[in-house]
Amino acid sequence: MNFALRKLAHGGLLILGVTLISFSLMVWFGPDQTYSLVGKNASAEQIAEIRKQLGYDQPFIERYVSYLTDLFTLNLGASNSSGEAVSNILKKTIPVTIQLMIPGFILGNLLGIALGLLATYRKGRWIDRLINGFSVTSMSISFLVVIIFLQVFLCTPYGLNLFPVRGWQVTGLSSYLLYVTVPTLSLVFITVGYNTRFYRAVFVEEAGKDHIRTARAFGASPASILWRHVLKNSLVPITTRFMFSIPLIVVSGSLLIESYFGIPGIGKVTFDAITNGDQPVLKAVVGLTAVAFIFIQVLTDMIYKLIDPRIA
């Protein structure tokens, strides 16, 4: 009970911080919309009127409180640039982003775990060095370079010309595969180096623990030690990394992939909103990300209890 309360307080403080910083940056210091809303040659009164409507005449605290109130009552409003309800926009774009990001995200982690296990199994041998070399190489190539290269190589007549260059016209499984493949490959390639590094370090540390020596002393084979003892004991750090990269990958990763491939997901919408100063959309995205973080923290704590008997 005490624990749950502390978690809740912690989550509340985090949301408060995230909203405070994003409010200050995006709303208080953000672009001024007065002149895009008033007509040409507006009188001083008209301008004052608009500023009042937008709440620009209010002090910081009041604007921040009304920002929070809107967020918590889910009064998301309508986009400034298209006039469409923000909830509608989110409903349309979030599923696209999820479909776009999930395969690459999961594959990138699975591949990282597999390579990390293999490197731990053959620690110090040539295959470990090969995997390490591959990770460093992958970490040294810019995301943008990977995307451009894969696009030219797979989507244009200069390469294999197998997939569409950009867009997202998904109607069924085959069109989904057609549009998702190149973004997925990009995401996998760019995350696999970091993932492999991380997972290998976790596995190597677990493999050095005392109880691994015990398992060996009682005759367990290297494969079963790795598969059973090392992997199961590593589930906590694996879960942490996996869960906490979800919101970052979904927003930051999709921002880049979606603006490059012209895919109408939440990342592109967010980016457009930033460049247009579309505050209702920004409010919704930042608020939702913060809430998603809290939700993921709670969920992760629940998963910990399932996978580690010491966490009660």
Partner: peptide, 12 residues
Amino acid sequence: FQEPLTALDPVF
């Protein structure tokens, strides 16, 4: 082994 604290696998 010497250390009963760490010598057994904690998750089984």
